[in-house]
Design a protein around this nucleic acid. Structure first.
Lengths: 232, 232
DNA sequence: GAACACAAAATTGTATACAATACTGCTTTG
DNA sequence: CAAAGCAGTATTGTATACAATTTTGTGTTC
């Protein structure tokens, strides 16, 4: 996006930039849950010492995006079925309320921004880049939390959405025809109209739809934990 | 508590143990908001290198207990009035729901544990140790979140309670006669009876009481941000 | 041939050394 | 005398070196 020259410019990567790059890659499903994140590999990739890589990994582990086990190193987290339920239940608790607040406070600029987000999302889908579409979809939710003006809760939601990305990578059912484009569009409409009740209700049903589009049966649970235990 | 011998035993402190020790000290108001947390000082105190101290500080900064600014080091966070409101609004959103879930799931052992907590709280108050009483009071809330069985939300609440401790240190009004002992006791009663509605309502009013016992007027805001800007 | 034991390699945890930045106090100057 | 400039000190940021632990591969034994 920034510079499309041949090689990456020798920009001094900071721990934050590395965390963000990894976070983006995870969001876009470029790195699968369970993938080992070796410190030496990353330090070579980003041209910094392990010190700063470790800081980035620690940062990501605090939001449960990566899993650090002592003397075992870091790997992309793979949430269990229980955790998956918890994350979506938390979202169903927080986000409808947040959408209501956002409906109260949304300005014309906010609405325009959200519509641009949706537009980008469609473009990513048309470009057959579902990873980026998923990332933008998460950004849409984050943006609503920001509009609501509750930075604390917005922070929580941000981590929940990050974890949702992992959950979707693990448990998404192909069969379920997801058409959240409409859901997002309707939500923006409610926000633009300052219709609090509708915004809250649309957000709730949207999240319930997402939640039920996951395959969170037990059988997978066993497979997952075995695979998890084996994965390096 | 552990060993009351003369000097501290040469136990190898880990980054987690340091973070917990600092967290406890902040909870108990042994360290005031704004206090500088120099890396060299801490590394000497705990007998480890700055590496592990930095990890501990980073960990605490992620839950907003300490504030790290580049090239400026770490200091105990001092939440603004806006942040204070946000924290309590978030608590008022999360905790009543959590209390409801806890009322459903609380076992006899849970109730006994909570009653022991309240007892300890009273003992700390009698021993004229309000810092410890405050810490135990926070632990009471954390425990309820744990009983509710939603680890994700419980984690959020834990960070909110930690930040509440800072907020209370900054904005508590002496005048307000706090008698939350009764509130906690009544809450345990509702949990023991599995009375969801009452538990939710008691928690909500308890939090509203706490919130309104803070002095969050603007005038302090200016004083605070000035002091904040000056405090190294 | 399978299982165990042990040695070698790789990886993470911690400490230390060096570089960069911010802070302090003095001197100088108007 | 106030204010700005400058040198010295202190503190943080990063890289590297070493220690500890885990993993891997090989050889031995039953």
């Amino acid at each position: 996006m920034t510079r499309s020259t041949v090689s990456t410019p020798p920009k001094p990567a900071t721990s934050d930039s590395i965390a963000q790059a990894l976070s983006l890659a995870i969001h876009e499903h470029k790195i699968a849950p369970g993938t080992k994140l070796g410190e030496d590999d990353l330090s070579e990739i980003y041209g910094v010492s392990r010190t700063v890589v470790r800081a980035a990994l620690q940062s990501l582990s605090h939001i449960k995006l990566v899993d650090i086990r002592r003397n075992k190193g870091a790997s992309v987290a793979s949430p269990s079925i229980i955790e998956a339920h918890e994350v979506f239940e938390a979202r169903e608790l927080l986000e409808p309320r947040t959408a209501r607040s956002a409906a109260l406070r949304a300005t014309a600029a906010d609405i325009a921004l959200l519509e641009r987000h949706i537009n980008d999302e469609h473009k990513a889908l048309d470009a057959a880049d579902p990873g980026r579409a998923l990332y933008l979809s998460g950004l849409f939710h984050t943006e609503i939390a920001r509009i609501a003006g509750q930075a604390t809760i917005a922070g929580f939601i941000e981590t929940l959405i990050a974890r949702s990305s992992l959950i979707i990578a693990l448990y998404w059912r192909r069969e379920s025809a997801l058409c959240e484009k409409h859901a997002h569009h309707a939500l923006v409409g409610a926000l633009a109209d300052h219709n609090e009740q509708q915004a809250e209700e649309l957000m709730r049903s949207h999240l319930v739809d997402l939640h039920s589009a996951l395959d969170l049966r037990e059988r997978h649970g066993r497979t997952l934990s075995l695979k998890d235990a084996l994965s390096q």
